[in-house]
Design a protein around this nucleic acid. Structure first.
Length: 637
DNA sequence: CTAGGGTTAG
């Protein structure tokens, strides 16, 4: 009688699932569920309050479905497996995969006759929990019990394997599918193509697209590839595919347009994005609210808040009401171009339009003021939000701390840091890193190290930014060996040094007469595929200059330009200084010319050094004349 | 039951 069970399930992934298995008291389950959510959101997610609100809604909806399940379970005769599957599907849509797996188990206990649909749902849930291995074992079980897999079974597993990064296995299953007499359908191809795209294999995805042309790939497959091309900054290629699909009579939809418009905005062609929007409207495809928000955001990021603002009237005209996110996005856009007046105005305006402020609205505006060094405005807003009964969260506090750090009110920042924790807000990696970075920049490295240790004690893992601040701080106070220890520890913790981390450490070596180690690390960096930027070149070239390695400095300068990295004023000035200090007059003058060619000015220190050498009469006459003229130009004479 | 996209805060 138990032939229909899916027995011997892998152990539960979630304690909640066990609980559901044995307990019938749903209110208790729901309350536990809430707690389990809360616990899991503390460390990784940024906005506790925000998540909790969403979870609460989600939990209530889940609660309703669990009540329905319970009613089903007590009905005589039992509802069919189809009815149960409908219910399970709704829970799947809420992303409660472990719950669904538990409920499928309960179906067996209840003696509901299973079918391939139920197996497919379970397989799908395991795939979504990143356990395609369990999905495969359920698949095996289904076969053993004589259930015929269908398209959904194969396609679901192929998706799971792709998501797991096992493209080879996905292809194997594809072959197995053929052997079982299933001709892959358009969904199978779509799944494979999406898998290839997500795994960075766009070329193969396009090859597959060409192979299945007679299967008439639809708008979804084209959109998948267009999306990937846009993400990879191959917008031109994406536009070609777009043209191709329309010529074939495949109608693009809102997704296709949205991908392209985002791609065009991020490749800084907002005009083309706008033309595409017109095209879309002309085809009577109306963007939804999210689409508008995405566009507004894309324009704002380009510093086009004003243009973006025009969209507001436009979207209202199209019958779409902006929401809080729309306004928050625009406020952020105005802050970005330092139009705090406009930002503040919009902030006030939104609440007159029925869009209530949320914690993000405040955070965006506070950040705008803080970045503008108007910390008092930020603090005023902080008070105001409490009055509006909007609780500041860890982001709010971190923003304020950052603002205080920016104006060197470090003690005040530390006060807020303690105060927020007294209020029950747990500092996260950004909070700590902000303080650590500032302490290091003020050469208060011991206090920074104390906080770094506190992070470990409070189980807030440092990230590459935290490490970089510490390494830079230690280098600045000459503690090169200690800095190097942290540099080594970083990789022990499974983190990748960033170009800033490398630059800090290389700079530390080079400034402390450990040029060889700096050079070695520079090479290691390149080997690891990390691309040097102008700061990295500056510290390295500086190291060469100040150690009398003129040729090496020159060579690296040339190499830098070949690699497409443009020198800045700081780099060239410091090369001139380096050469002057080494009495390499000819070279120094050569770089004065380079400075001039690039349209940069001598900085104060370089100028002082130059004049010193001129007074000593070291410069040849012609060079001397050139430098004089240049100095005058620099001084605006 | 199976394939695509998507906005805001440090």
């Amino acid at each position: 009688m138990m032939t229909t069970t899916i027995m011997n399930w892998p152990p539960s992934l979630n304690p909640l699932a066990n609980l559901l298995h044995s307990v019938v008291d749903f209110p208790i389950i729901v309350s536990l569920l809430r707690n389990s959510h809360r616990r899991s959101t503390i460390a990784p997610l940024h906005s506790l309050r925000h998540c909790e609100e969403i979870d609460r809604e989600n939990d209530l909806a889940l609660y309703d479905e669990l009540v329905s399940f319970n009613k089903f379970a007590h009905r005589q005769p039992l509802p069919s497996i189809k009815d149960f599957c409908k219910l399970l599907t709704r829970i799947v849509k809420m992303n409660h995969y472990s719950v669904v797996i538990s409920l499928v188990q309960r179906l067996d206990v209840l003696g509901v006759k299973s079918d391939i649909y139920a197996f497919n749902i379970a397989i799908n849930c395991f795939c979504h929990l990143n356990r395609v291995d369990f999905g495969l074992s359920v698949f095996g079980k289904a076969l053993k019990r004589g259930f015929e897999p269908d398209y959904a079974t194969f396609n679901t597993l192929i998706r799971g394997l792709c998501a797991d990064g096992s493209l080879d296995q996905a292809h194997k299953l594809f072959d197995q599918m053929l052997e079982s007499g299933f001709k892959p359908n358009i969904v199978t191809y779509g799944t494979l193509i999406n898998g290839m795209c997500k795994l960075g294999n766009t070329t193969d995805a396009i090859i597959l697209l060409r192979k299945i042309e007679e299967e008439s790939p639809g708008v979804i497959i084209y959109s998948t590839i267009i999306h990937t091309l846009c993400k990879n900054r191959q917008v031109t290629h994406a536009l070609h595919l777009f043209q191709e699909m329309t010529e074939k009579g495949i109608t693009p939809n809102v997704v296709t347009y949205l991908c392209l418009m985002q791609g065009l905005c991020s490749s800084e062609s907002p005009q083309l994005a706008k033309r595409l929007l017109d095209d879309m409207l002309a085809r009577n495809i109306s963007p939804n609210l999210q689409a508008f928000n995405v566009l507004i955001n894309a324009l704002c990021k380009l510093g086009l808040a004003t243009e973006s603002h025009n969209f507001l009237a436009f979207m209202i005209e199209k019958g779409m009401l902006p929401n809080t996110t729309t306004y928050n996005t625009l406020i952020k856009g105005y802050c970005l171009i330092q139009r705090l007046d406009k930002a503040k105005h919009l902030f006030n305006y939104m609440s007159t339009q029925g869009c209530d402020h949320d914690v993000v609205s405040y955070n965006v505006l506070i950040n705008g003021y803080c970045k503008n060094q108007e910390i008092d405005e930020g603090l005023t807003l902080l008070k105001k939000m409490s009055k509006q009964k909007i609780d500041p969260n860890v982001v709010t506090y971190t923003t304020i701390i950052h603002g205080l750090c920016l104006v060197s009110k470090l003690e005040d920042a530390l006060v807020i840091f303690h105060k927020m924790q007294d209020c029950g807000h747990i500092a996260n990696v950004v909070t700590y890193s902000t303080l650590i970075d500032t302490l290091c920049k003020h050469e208060r490295v011991n206090e920074a190290l104390y906080l770094f240790k506190l992070m470990d004690d409070t189980h807030v893992p440092p990230d590459v930014f935290t490490f970089t601040s510490i390494i830079d701080g230690l280098c600045k106070v000459g503690e090169i060996d200690a800095a190097n220890d942290y540099f080594l520890e970083l990789s022990c913790r499974g983190l990748q040094p960033s170009v800033c981390t490398y630059t800090a450490m290389i700079g530390g070596f080079c400034r402390n007469r450990r040029l060889d180690e700096g050079e070695e690390l520079f090479m290691k960096m390149e080997e690891s595929g990390c691309v040097a930027n102008v700061h990295t070149y500056t510290v390295m070239i500086n190291g060469y200059c100040r150690n009398g390695k003129v040729d090496e400095a020159n060579e690296l300068f040339v190499k830098m330009k070949e690699s497409g990295c443009l020198p800045d004023s700081c780099l060239i000035n410091s090369i001139i200084q380096g050469f002057l200090l080494q009495n390499e007059m000819t070279k120094a003058i050569q770089y004065v010319d380079i400075l001039r060619e690039n349209g940069f000015l001598l900085d104060v220190y370089t100028e002082a050094l130059l004049q010193n050498f001129q007074c000593c009469g070291v410069l040849e006459h012609s060079s001397k004349k050139g430098v004089e003229i240049f100095s005058q130009e620099c001084n605006g004479e």
